[in-house]
Design a protein around this nucleic acid. Sequence first.
DNA 1: TTAGGGTTAG
Length: 553
Amino acid sequence: MSSQTQLRLILYEFSRKFQTKLSTQKLHSFVTKSRLARDPFFATQLVRLYAQNDDLASARKLFDVFPDRSVFLWNSVIRAYAKAHQFSTAFSLFSQMLSSDRRPDNFTYACLARGFSESFDTDGLRCIHGIAMVSGHGFDQICGSAIVKAYSKAGHISEASKLFLSIPDPDVALWNVMISGYECCGIWDKGINMFNLMQHRGNLPNCYTMVALATCLIDPSLLHIAWSVHGFCLKINLDTHSYVGCALVNMYSRCRCIASARSVYNSISGPDLVACSSLITGYSRCGNHKEALYLFNELRVSGKKPDCVLVAIVLGSCAELSDSVYGKEVHGYAIRLGLEFDIKVHSALIDMYSKCGVLDSAINLFEGIPEKNIVSFNSVILGLGLNGFASTVFEKFTEMLEMGLKPDEATFAALLCTCCHSGLLYKGQEIFERMKFEFGIEPKTEHYVYLVKLMGMAGKLEEAFEFVMSLRKPIDSGILGALLSCCEVHENTQLAEVVAEKILENGEERGRSVYKVMLSNVYARYGRWDEVERLRDGISESFGGKLPGISWF
DNA sequence: TTAGGGTTAG
């Protein structure tokens, strides 16, 4: 073996083993002084390593002075800019490449497709797809998988599917991208079909396939399919794979089957921050906030560093439990981690303090934000509203508008919630109209719920009923439930029966018992015990029984 | 003689 070959091998091993910023600089300086200074392979490695260490300036400096740029080198620098979200530079480098003596290859188009996808530029994506087709790379697996992924991420699933079907003999990666694509667009059944088809065509699913499939299943009604997916993972020994395990934990928690999520989590050896975050989020999503906090504590003790989103979720659990003592501890912890100025953490802190009734701390935090945005305003408006400070809420709303901030759905939900808490029917109706006509925001279920509650609580039950009936069918059970709760308060049995019937017609299992209890409470007030018994029996049969409350007194 | 497309949470 020649000394030059030996040197190549040694340096290549070095570049693989040591990937820090410092070792990259050392490698660069060594290569520059060696006989390999003009070697495009090492130049490519160095660009990749610099980019990996967020040092685009050094990568670019190297690229700019490099005399003989290979396609690899062009691709690595284009990829570096695309990954750093500096899309215009990536595309201008592509233009320069077109006028150089190197022709773009399948990987070049794959990088560009990713760039257009991440910059939400569908026209650009279609354009690069066209150029790739003309240059003969359109049906390539590498280029094709990147374009299929980009189309599906942009929601253009039919274009993604059309391209996928036109590529002869797709490899496993391409199948995986297509399954993920259906997942992105919420078409889980097509994802499952693809999964069956890929096996039928002789392709063995791998960890990527199982992650894509598990990610499709996001609703309790899909739990039976979730079990099959988990079963398949067990069969091919992928259930303990770290990414697959996390995807399964998340799948079960979104299917509201937290016991199975926990069981998968327990089977992962050395669960990482993502696995732990998935389970904490699952507990929080299922309303088991105490367990979420307990697990967060375990995570802290284990030395893992939570990120901003996890801290915000945990603060949400503190808010739900009205646990300001633990909330303050998390606040202190966030300060120690340097996360307190993150907008998500900051807003979650305002939300936590206001829901725990510690309004002074919430307001102090809000006033301390140097650059207030819509999220921080929404948090403080909701906090003040929940604590009954309606006039201050509308002052903050005016302040927000004067600052030129555009209110969103959450702002109006918080304003309507304020009106509900303070019984401001006409103000609420005015806000609802302004949301629709002045700000062009289409009302969602929660806005309707607040408006119906406002009307119902003010005793305008008939008006509320007419309003609800005028909505597009099927009417959401949450909106009908809001009206039913008002019927319960105003002891209007006749209307309660009509509304409850409409809710039961919706045929949703979840929440049925809650509405039946509401109706039975109305019957009980009038001593209609036969009706009460019928409803309560129905609850035990259909819902496995609602746990009866126990009084401490 | 080596490099590049497709994975996990909120």
